[in-house]
Nucleic acid binder design. Structure first.
Lengths: 338, 338
DNA sequence: CTGTTAGCGCTTTCAA
DNA sequence: TTGAAAGCGCTAACAG
């Protein structure tokens, strides 16, 4: 057939005609929803196969009031950790037979608009990896039976589930590792407009140190004015006395900090110890060899989807928070002890 | 209202009733498609506003035979260049009022399934950034009036448009820069299962060198058995005589190569010159300071969308290929000359 | 300019 | 087990 012929897509009616049954039977044969004799089912499936029939998801979704779409809200995918998280989510979403709708937001107001757009597509769920959804719009989702799950965000929205890396445990491990390897003067590096996860790591780190008996005056805080690599770089260049043991809110800051210190002739682990978070691919490269807490994105993604589908069945269950284990990866910037 | 009340979404009928008009008028007021008096339009819009009406995109799409969705096919988003390309595409898609449907593929067969799924959602277009779409399924898209555009892939599919970075020009610039800074023995580093873009860069590089009168025996080719950072690392460790001037198919390989050379005590630009491709954020970091060709992802994304929407209007126009300018970013591994 | 009407393609009662 | 029929929410052609 010439490509100039606008071929009408094959509909369930075409399949029905070919199989000599009604549209309803076709629907049953394909959705295994409603009773149908094995023989006719077989017949219909063959007809569908021969015609190359494909369900129209728009029509199906319109009817079922629910599409097979899952909305994902992200920000700054350029950041290596975020892109790997997105990768994990896509993988998991596809594995479960859904299709991802992804939107990158740049501010909180985008979030509202995006959530609203997602509801217009009658998504089966929404995953938020950035921003804090306003209560009001979340309620819109809830009332339309659209489950929402947040990843690494403050778990305080009713009827929304959360999956977070266990920042507390990670920070405690970092504190312990640094302390046990002999550090006595500590630093905590984060950027000014940090995410909630970053703040949580910082608090837990300081707390753990104090539990170990470290004098608060021996803990200093570096607040980079920009995020990412540049922030770490700047912090390293501007800080005065360099502590023995430094913990960073994320990998990008840590890499920048390492490079900034090198500019001053200081190297880890010789002159200081450094532990990062995230374990992005870059952390392991020879130029950095960063000791870091690993976030298990695959597990985070799995749990997020599980929560989503669970809540789809049972929309009013109380909000749940799952803490995903983090693992210390021992590399050069803070060598393994013992 | 209690959240346990399953609130039915507001429909055009509700708005119509409230505004005292018919459903059709509501449709016109919102789509500015068909004539309507300013007064009633105003009235309808207010009613819609008050009720918080949101169009049901599933119904709209079903009717118009076209959703406001654009499918994007990606692979290995973990790679920094790919994630920044995706970021650019998302930005552009959203800017033009569409919503991205993104799928990560891991093999060619995924591609067929994905394209098919996209058609089931009646997408307005498909952007392929990975894999080579089989002619057969592309025809399905074409016959359903779904435009397809490929980014950085071999531009040889009829009725499909392509947007590619100008690999030839980039490779020529690299060859020239290396030659003019005094290099006489050259290397080309790529990984074994390279993309088409990588191959094209290699060919153009070799060709340009020969044009400059370089003896082919003074050009060696490194084929890393794995892709990315690890491949570069391995290549650096296993190569015997290190050439003066090396060109890499991408940034990841280049960074790995730099680190691998450092293990052997060799440093750029002291012991060799190195030029990469992509200009990922990492390229500029202090540990690498890579001289590299910059791919303009924002421009690539803009053109891709323009092509898509253009072809939507005029589906049978001949296939077009757009070459997007690349720019040499001069950093340390091959210092600017003159 | 506005309302009526006929679908878009599918699912799902409800009878047979 | 199957078919007929209603309807998901919206748009567009056609009358008025």
């Amino acid at each position: 057939m010439s490509p100039s012929v606008r071929k009408q897509a094959i509909t369930a009616q075409d399949v029905a005609t070919r199989a000599g049954v009604s549209r309803a039977v076709v629907s049953r044969a394909l959705s295994s929803n409603g009773s149908i004799s094995p023989a006719t089912k077989e017949k219909v499936l063959r007809a569908a196969q021969e015609l190359g029939y494909q369900v129209n998801f728009l029509a199906q979704g319109l009817n079922r009031q629910r599409s097979h779409l899952i909305g994902v809200i992200v920000a700054r995918i350029g950041d290596p950790f975020r892109s790997s998280l997105l990768e994990g989510l896509l993988h998991e979403i596809q594995r479960r037979g859904y299709q991802a709708l992804v939107t990158e937001i740049t501010g909180e107001q985008d979030l509202t608009a995006t959530l609203r757009r997602f509801t217009q597509f009658r998504v089966s769920g929404v995953i938020v990896t950035s921003g804090q959804p306003p209560q009001e719009i979340v309620n819109e989702c809830v009332s339309q039976q659209i489950p929402v799950v947040g990843i690494n965000r403050p778990p305080d929205i009713p009827l929304v589930d959360f999956v977070c890396s266990d920042n507390h445990a990670g920070a405690r491990q970092a504190a312990e590792q640094l302390y046990r390897s002999g550090c006595r003067r500590f630093g905590w590096l984060n950027h000014a407009g940090s995410t909630w996860a970053g703040l949580q790591r910082g608090e837990a780190f300081l707390q753990a140190l104090q539990h170990s008996g470290v004098d608060p005056r021996d803990i200093c805080r570096f607040d980079a004015s920009v995020e990412g690599y540049g922030g770490g770089l700047q912090a390293a260049q501007t800080c005065e006395a360099v502590p023995d043991g430094i913990f960073c809110a994320n990998a990008q800051l840590a890499c920048g900090f390492l490079d900034g210190m090198r500019l001053r002739g200081k190297e880890a682990p010789r002159d200081f110890h450094l532990i990062g978070f995230d374990n992005t691919p870059q952390s392991g490269q020879l130029s950095y060899r960063l000791t870091t807490l690993h976030q298990d994105v695959a597990e985070i993604a799995r749990r997020a989807l599980t929560r989503l589908l669970e809540r789809a069945k049972n929309p009013l269950q109380p909000s749940r928070v799952e803490w995903v284990k983090v693992e210390m990866i021992h590399r050069q910037t803070s060598p393994q002890i013992g």
